[in-house]
């Protein structure tokens, strides 16, 4: 299992409590379209990702992230930078 796969799994675990419709997660799953999250859910979820990986995902970065795959990529980048 690569580091990226591990990150994907960790992110998927963090999504689970907010995935009320039980949507199957892939790289292309979108937070708005597929998971139908509103801004409040996004805030709680982002905080949980930040705490899990000890990173900071600014609102500026969040605006660019639409899918689970993009989030995993962003987490990977932030971890290696930090």
């Amino acid at each position: 299992m690569t580091d990226r796969d591990e990150t994907f799994d960790k992110v998927a675990k963090l999504i689970a409590p907010f995935n009320q419709k039980g949507v199957a997660l892939t790289e292309a799953t979108s937070f708005a379209g597929d998971l139908e999250w509103d801004s409040l859910v996004v805030m709680d979820f982002v905080a949980s990702v930040e705490d899990e990986f000890d990173i900071l995902i600014t609102m500026n970065m969040q605006a660019e992230i639409e899918t689970v795959g993009q989030l995993v990529d962003a987490v990977e980048t932030l971890r290696t930078e930090g």
Binding site: S30, A32, W37, V42, M43, V46, Q62
Partner: peptide, 11 residues
């Protein structure tokens, strides 16, 4: 402004 975060489904 949070409404822009991760493009939530409010379109």
């Amino acid at each position: 402004s949070v409404a822009n975060a991760m493009n939530p489904a409010d379109e």
